[in-house]
Simulated assay, not measured.
Amino acid sequence: MTGPSGVRLPETAAVLAVRRGVREWVAARGGRGPVVVGLSGGADSLALVAAAVVEAGAVTAVVVDHRLQEGSAEVADRAVEQARALGCVGAMVVPVDVGRAGGVEAAARVARYAALESVRDGRPVLLGHTLDDQAETVLLGLARGSGGRSIQGMVAWNSPWGRPLLGVRRAETVQVCADLGIAPWDDPHNTDPSYTRVRVRNEVLPLLEEVLGGGVAQALARTADQLRADGTVLDAYADELLRAARAVPDTGTPDSDRPTLSIEILTTAPPALRRRAVRAWLADQGVTGLMNAHLQAIDELVSNWRGQGGVAVAGGSRDHRLVVTREHGTLAVRAQPRI
């Protein structure tokens, strides 16, 4: 079977499923064009490369070498060779240094996305996340108990990141590689039980599938889609509330250039909308890493004021921390010296 690029792929059920995912993603974005594919050498990203070469247009594969395992350079070089054999117009390795902030997994993710951003040259970057990855993400978010937003999962398009395979099972990408005669790389981290996601993948989800009679991964992914659609509507209403609540900052206090929110307007809003509006406002003020406990304490400043002090939040600088306070009928973010 020959695609628009001239590359031939076998006509198997797995290949058709992956091609369909990429084709639908491309159509939703307005048609074919050059793309970058983040390639690890694993089955998911190799299957994505194969389908993207046929369906998306000119494909450049980028292999990020995290240099966390012995022999990672050889793995990266092999993936580049496979990408070229599949018909990519370009393939490269980008070595990175991975820090330790937030743990190895989080630091590697930050380094990987920064590397892909540095070479994409205005092109969208396709990532090989599958329906199984989506199910794991939703289940982990549910366990954190951080509200509906944390279980909305990954989106198919969040510029510049595209995820065409969110409707494709991991088993199908493995089968694509088998159909193509390609040997994917098996990352030993994917079987290391010291990683929470690995245990969710290899122990928790299979047990849920067994106990509940199957279909759990699809149900979790479907739940994420529904919550994301609901969240879009709620965000629109929260934006309206935020515009109404924005107060003119006073000119006689430190940080007077920071916008404040009217307590009176916030208290008249449903709690769900109020918390969404406050979260968006805090993000605009440079607040990072907002936890559910922070948001609840800030909401208490609005809805259950008892004279309590401000709420310290992440952000600020080395010399100053950010604190959300209630003052003069408004909610404000103030920079306070670190002690």
Rank of each mutant, 00 (worst) to 15 (best):
L180K: 01
S256L: 07
E210D: 08
L208C: 09
A312P: 12
T268L: 10
L131T: 04
P184F: 06
T196F: 13
G213A: 09
P270F: 14
A27W: 09
G71C: 12
A314W: 15
V36D: 01
L220I: 10
A244S: 12
A217L: 06
G6Y: 01
G3W: 00
H320C: 14
A27C: 06
A183K: 13
S303Y: 02
L227S: 10
H189Q: 08
Y237P: 08
V75K: 04
P206A: 10
P259R: 06
M1K: 08
G42A: 11
D77A: 10
Q285M: 10
A56K: 00
T253Y: 10
L331I: 02
V333L: 05
Q175F: 10
L282F: 04
T325I: 15
V174E: 11
E136M: 12
L165Y: 04
A143V: 02
R334E: 15
S303M: 07
S150A: 13
E209V: 13
R23F: 03
A312V: 05
A111F: 01
V311C: 10
G215I: 08
A314G: 09
G30M: 06
A52C: 09
R338Y: 02
W157E: 12
G289W: 15
V278G: 02
R228E: 13
E74T: 15
G90Y: 09
A269E: 03
A43F: 00
R258V: 14
A111M: 01
V216G: 03
H129S: 15
L295T: 00
I182D: 06
Q152R: 10
H129G: 15
Q152M: 13
P193N: 05
D44C: 05
V216M: 06
R32A: 11
A269Q: 01
V200C: 02
Q336N: 07
A106K: 04
P124Q: 04
D187Y: 08
A115F: 00
R276V: 15
T196M: 11
R32M: 09
D186A: 12
V89Y: 04
H129D: 15
A143M: 02
A244G: 08
A293H: 08
T330I: 01
P193R: 11
L322N: 03
G122P: 06
M1F: 08
P271T: 13
R120M: 02
A238F: 07
G307T: 01
R246E: 10
T137D: 03
D235I: 15
R243I: 04
I265H: 07
W25H: 02
A312M: 12
V89I: 06
V287I: 14
V168C: 07
P249N: 11
E327K: 05
G57N: 07
R144V: 00
T253H: 12
